[in-house]
Computed example of a mutant assay.
Amino acid sequence: MEADASHDHSTDVGRRVALRREQLGLSREETAGRAGVAPQYLRYLEEHEASPSIGSLTRVARALDTTVAELSGAEAPTPARPEGGGAVVSLDPDECYELVAAHTVGRIAIGTEQGPAIVPVTYAVVEGAVVFQAAGLVGGKERLAFEVDSIDEAGGVGWSVQLAGPVTEITDEPERRRLAEALPETTWPPTARARWLRLTPTRTTGHRVAPRSAA
C-alpha cells in the first residue's frame, strides 16, 4: 500500500514514535503541539532515517507519555557499527528542502573583520526561502552560506544540508508580523536589535551518512 511505503526508510526510533502515537490515538499535529515541535519534523522523524537530538527526542517522549529509553530502544543490545564507517550518499534538492523545513535551528557562515564566523540562528522556511533574525554581523552582506545537520556519532549516521544564496533585509513591518508567526516562539540568538533577513538559495547540496548495508 502507498500509505505504508513512506515508512520503508524509517528508523527504529521513528517506528516506535509512530506506534506509540497511534496507541494513544493522537494525530501528528496533536503530538507535535504537545512536544513543541513542527508537524513536519514529526513526520520526518517517523518516515525517514532521522537522527533526532536528545532534546527533541525528550520532548517527543514526554508528549507520548513514555521515555527516551523506550523510544530509542536503549534496553536492546546496541548493534555493532559497520567496519569502515558509513557510506556517504548525496541528497537531491527535494530531500534537502524537506530536511531543512523539518528543523528550526541552523548555522550561517559569514565573513567578518576578524575572519570567518559561524553563527547559530533560529529559522523558518517560508515560500522556498530561509527566514531568520540575526544581529549586526550579517548586516550589508550580499551572500551567505547556511547549514543544518543532525549527526548521531554513536550510531555513525546523520545528514547535512548546505544552502547558499543572496540575503536581503526584510523591512516591511506587516511582513515581519506575518513571518513572526512562522518562527519558533523561542529564538536563537536573542532578537533584541536583530535584523529580519531572508536567504534565497541559489545553491543546494546535501549528504547523508548511513550504514553501508542501508545505503
Score class of each variant (00 low, 15 high):
Gln40Asn: 12
Gln40Thr: 15
Tyr41His: 10
Tyr41Ile: 04
Tyr41Pro: 01
Arg43Pro: 00
Glu46Lys: 08
His48Thr: 15
Ala50Cys: 03
Ser53Ala: 10
Val60Glu: 11
Leu64His: 09
Thr66Gln: 07
Thr66Arg: 11
Thr66Trp: 10
Thr67Leu: 06
Val68Gln: 13
Glu70His: 15
Leu71Ser: 07
Gly73His: 04
Gly73Leu: 09
Glu75Cys: 07
Glu75Leu: 14
Pro79Arg: 08
Pro82Gly: 15
Pro82Ala: 13
Glu83Gln: 09
Gly84Cys: 08
Val89Trp: 06
Leu91Tyr: 07
Asp92Thr: 05
Asp94Ser: 15
Glu95Met: 10
Tyr97Pro: 00
Val100His: 13
Val100Cys: 08
Ala102Leu: 02
His103Asp: 10
Gly106Arg: 03
Gly106Tyr: 01
Arg107Gln: 12
Ile110His: 11
Ile110Leu: 15
Gly111His: 02
Gln114Glu: 13
Pro116Ile: 00
Ala117Arg: 07
Ile118Asn: 07
Ile118His: 01
Val119Lys: 12
Val119Ser: 13
Pro120Glu: 11
Thr122Cys: 08
Tyr123Cys: 07
Tyr123Asn: 05
Ala124Tyr: 11
Ala124Thr: 08
Ala124Phe: 06
Glu127Gln: 08
Gly128Arg: 05
Val131Asn: 08
Ala135Asn: 12
Ala135Asp: 13
Gly140Glu: 04
Lys141Phe: 03
Leu144Ser: 03
Phe146Asn: 04
Phe146Ala: 04
Asp149Phe: 07
Asp149Gln: 01
Ser150Trp: 01
Asp152Gln: 00
